[in-house]
Amino acid sequence: MTELDGLLAAGRAAAAELMRETVTIRAAAAEGGFDWESGTESPGTGAVLYTGQARVKAVARSRGEEVDAGEHNVTLREYTISVPWGSAAPPERVVPGATVDVDESPDARLVGLRLWVTGVEYGSTATAWRISAEDRS
C-alpha cells in the first residue's frame, strides 16, 4: 500500500462517517419526465440502481432559481449526494434524469425528498462518489 492509498482510505472512512441518510437511486424511465405545460414532474418507474447509505447536502452557492413551468413557478435547489466510494457499481450508469429519493435521515425534513440527477462525478482519488441533483419543488 502506498502513502496515497493510506490517505485515500482514511479520507473515504471519514466521508462515510458523514453519510447519515439512506437513499434510493432509480434510473431515468422513458415514460417519466418534466411536463412543461402542467409544471409537474413524473419520474416513471426506472430500475433501482442503488439503495443504501449516503450524505445529502444542500449546495451553499445554490441560488434557488425560479423557473416558469406551465402556469407554475418551480424553484430549483441544488444538492450534492455522496455515496460510499467503495459501493458496488450499479448495473447501469447513473445519468441526468435519474432520481434520488431520501428514505431515512436524522433530519425529518429530508425524508421523502425527491431529487433529480443533473450530473455525476467519478474519480479514482475521490473520497466518495458524488452526484449533483436538484429539488424541483
Rank of each mutant, 00 (worst) to 15 (best):
A10C: 08
L4H: 12
D35T: 10
A27T: 04
L113V: 10
W129P: 15
L8G: 09
G11C: 12
L76Y: 06
V95K: 03
A133F: 05
T40H: 02
T125E: 14
T125W: 07
T75A: 01
G44H: 08
T40N: 10
T2S: 15
V111G: 09
A128E: 07
T80L: 07
A126Y: 11
G46F: 09
E41T: 14
A47R: 07
E134W: 06
G6R: 13
G32C: 07
G64D: 11
E3S: 13
E92K: 06
D101K: 05
L76P: 08
V117D: 05
A16R: 14
P91F: 13
R114G: 01
A10K: 12
S105D: 00
G112H: 04
S38A: 11
G32K: 12
E121C: 07
S132G: 14
P91N: 09
V94D: 01
V74I: 12
T80Y: 15
A29Q: 04
R63N: 08
A29L: 02
S87N: 13
L7K: 15
A60E: 10
A14N: 11
A58E: 02
G86Y: 13
D135I: 10
S137I: 05
A60N: 09
W85M: 13
G32H: 13
S38H: 03
P84Y: 06
F34A: 03
L8R: 13
V102S: 01
V94P: 02
G33C: 11
T80S: 06
A54L: 05
A9C: 10
T118F: 14
A16S: 03
L49C: 00
S38I: 03
P106A: 05
M1S: 13
W85G: 00
A126T: 03
D68C: 02
A88W: 06
E21Y: 06
T40Q: 12
S137A: 14
G123Y: 00
V59Y: 05
Q53T: 11
A60H: 10
G70Q: 04
T99P: 00
A15I: 14
L49S: 05
S62H: 04
A133D: 00
I131K: 08
R77A: 01
G11R: 12
A14K: 13
I25C: 09
A28M: 12
S124D: 13
V59Q: 03
Y79I: 09
R26V: 01
W129L: 08
L110Q: 11
A47F: 05
R12Q: 15
A28L: 05
E31D: 15
L113E: 03
V102Y: 00
A28C: 09
A10T: 12
E65W: 11
L76E: 06
M19A: 06
R12T: 03
G33L: 10
E37A: 15
D103V: 14
T75V: 15
L18S: 04
A128Y: 10
V95P: 12
A54D: 12
G11A: 14
E92W: 04
A27G: 01
T2C: 08
D101I: 06
G46H: 08
E121W: 04
A13I: 14
A47G: 00
T40P: 02
R77E: 02
F34R: 04
G86K: 14
D101A: 11
L115R: 06
I81Y: 00
P91L: 08
G33I: 03
G44T: 07
L76R: 01
V59N: 10
G112W: 00
R55Y: 15
I25Q: 02
